[in-house]
Design a protein around this nucleic acid. Structure first.
Length: 222
DNA sequence: AAGGCTCTCAACCGCGCTGGA
DNA sequence: TTCCAGCGCGGTTGAGAGCCT
């Protein structure tokens, strides 16, 4: 989800200089960015955006590259080991996501941040009604030990549904799989066909992330 | 079947830091 | 030393999808 942020399309009549484009990236833009970075390397994002002919801010290009287009970006479910690590490191360092994410190869700070926020929100909501100690443990800096990694499975949320069943059902293992459906249609839309990915995009780009989906979760008890 | 609610996550925004002029 | 542009980070937003009633 999330592709539907406010589109402020560039071409709104008359202006000599098109406004900077915002909102969801098209596959065409992704290809341009990926090809350009592959050829020239990353960094100097503002000049990169101009040189590549992308009508985007450097910030936007950087974010897109780091969070999505990078060849080594790993998508899919957070593994139990990663979950433990996130909780541990967040307890130690707080919301220093960029620091935390260095210990989680292939993950992005945005992903970890979102993951943590959703967990906190859920726990707080649950804690407000149940005031159980589990919610406090989640936020405790010393709550996590290795021994907890074998805690019980199948914790049912207040809504009656194990949290990560939802994630597992909706998250695609491959980076592009889910997203291609969400591309904004631009021009003829031919670029949105799968074949377009071949040009210049690193092979790893198309690899499905290894997802250890068996016996998933059971770490809600933090 | 329909409407409302909840969850997820891509993307934007604002602020602070850094390096060069 | 000061100013400014670029970059990185953390917080926040909002649309889409799925679930529930």
């Amino acid at each position: 989800g999330g592709e539907g942020r406010t589109m402020q399309c560039a071409a709104d009549g008359g202006g000599a200089e098109p406004a900077v484009r915002k909102g969801p990236w098209t596959m065409e833009e992704d290809l341009v960015l990926a090809n350009y970075v592959a050829a020239n390397g990353e960094g100097a994002w503002n000049s990169l955006a101009r040189a590549a002919g992308l009508n985007r801010t450097g910030k936007s290009c950087r974010l897109r590259w780091l969070n999505y287009l990078r060849p080594d970006v790993r998508r899919g479910n957070i593994t139990p080991e990663e979950h433990l690590l996130i909780v541990d490191l967040q307890g130690r360092w707080g919301n220093r996501w960029s620091k935390i994410v260095r210990h989680l190869p292939g993950r992005t700070d945005n992903e970890i941040k979102n993951f943590w926020r959703t967990k906190i929100q859920k726990k707080r909501r649950a804690g407000a009604t149940a005031s159980d100690s589990a919610g406090c443990q989640l936020l405790s800096s010393t709550a996590v030990t290795e021994s907890q990694s074998s805690s019980s499975n199948s914790v049912v949320r207040p809504g009656g549904m194990p949290h990560y069943d939802v994630v597992a059902a909706t998250t695609q293992p491959g980076g592009w799989g889910d997203h291609q459906l969400g591309y904004a249609v631009q021009g003829g839309g031919d670029a949105a066909c799968a074949g377009g990915m071949d040009g210049g995009v690193p092979p790893e780009f198309l690899q499905a992330a290894a997802v250890a989906a068996d016996n998933f979760w059971g770490l809600e008890e933090f």
